[in-house]
Design a protein around this nucleic acid. Sequence first.
DNA 1: CTGGCTGCAAAGTTTTTGCAAAGTC
DNA 2: GACTTTGCAAAAACTTTGCAGCCAG
Lengths: 141, 141
Amino acid sequence: MKETAQILREKGLKVTPQRIAVYNMLLNSTEHPNAETIYRALEPTNPTMSLATVYKTLDYFKQLGLVQELNVGEGSSRYDAVVKCHPHTVCMQCGKVQDLFLDELTEIHKKVKEELDFQVNCEQLILYGICGDCRKNKIEA
Amino acid sequence: MKETAQILREKGLKVTPQRIAVYNMLLNSTEHPNAETIYRALEPTNPTMSLATVYKTLDYFKQLGLVQELNVGEGSSRYDAVVKCHPHTVCMQCGKVQDLFLDELTEIHKKVKEELDFQVNCEQLILYGICGDCRKNKIEA
DNA sequence: CTGGCTGCAAAGTTTTTGCAAAGTC
DNA sequence: GACTTTGCAAAAACTTTGCAGCCAG
């Protein structure tokens, strides 16, 4: 696996501890954290880290295609280091956000192009519902 | 067509000029306005209308299923009086947001249920791209 | 060194809240 | 008349900005 430092350098960014920390946190997490969550996770190990830097860093990363911003209807944006367009499920009970990969979407792109003359670049599909765990807990309760 | 006043009454809401105005504006527009836009559109005819009331009204409507909130990645939320879950296209050039109806999504719901044990209630599919008009203008320019 | 990066605090946006006055039923 | 709803202003929540000092290359 490529070094985070090298990836940043290739994108023309200076390599700083803050940037490495943010990117690694996103790579090693599946929870799609928001800026605040990233900040709080990194604060203990990077005592000088500031929330503004997290925002600035995420903004750079987003523009350089290193991360994807995701808004599932909460107040704040979540971030995902998986950059390729892919759907997400959002559990309306526990709030968990999970990745998902579906082939069916390419067909939809084609159809929309033909029928509406709309050229799709990227899509965001958010499936709201109740995850298996929460359904189980509901029945037990 | 059912009277707006009657719809509100059936939902257990008191009928006020502000609520009628907001709901009618959403019904008669296809632009998926945000709270600010609604407010500015109604201000001339409803001089006492306030932005806070627009927000409160939209919040009631959302909870009662009269409108749908839509976040396409701008700072603010847009609102749609078409309540049934349906996809939207967002033109990355002109910003236009359009409705779309696709049957393919029911299949996706079924697949996600079977493979991930995730029960989908509602989905939000946003297709980002360039609309026909903008592509035409680009070629001409 | 030098230009980009950080961290702070202040400001900007969007949305929510508290409460007195007004309006609905 | 009882109880909501409104509108104002203040506050909250999230994000961006300005700038002095710091750090990577």
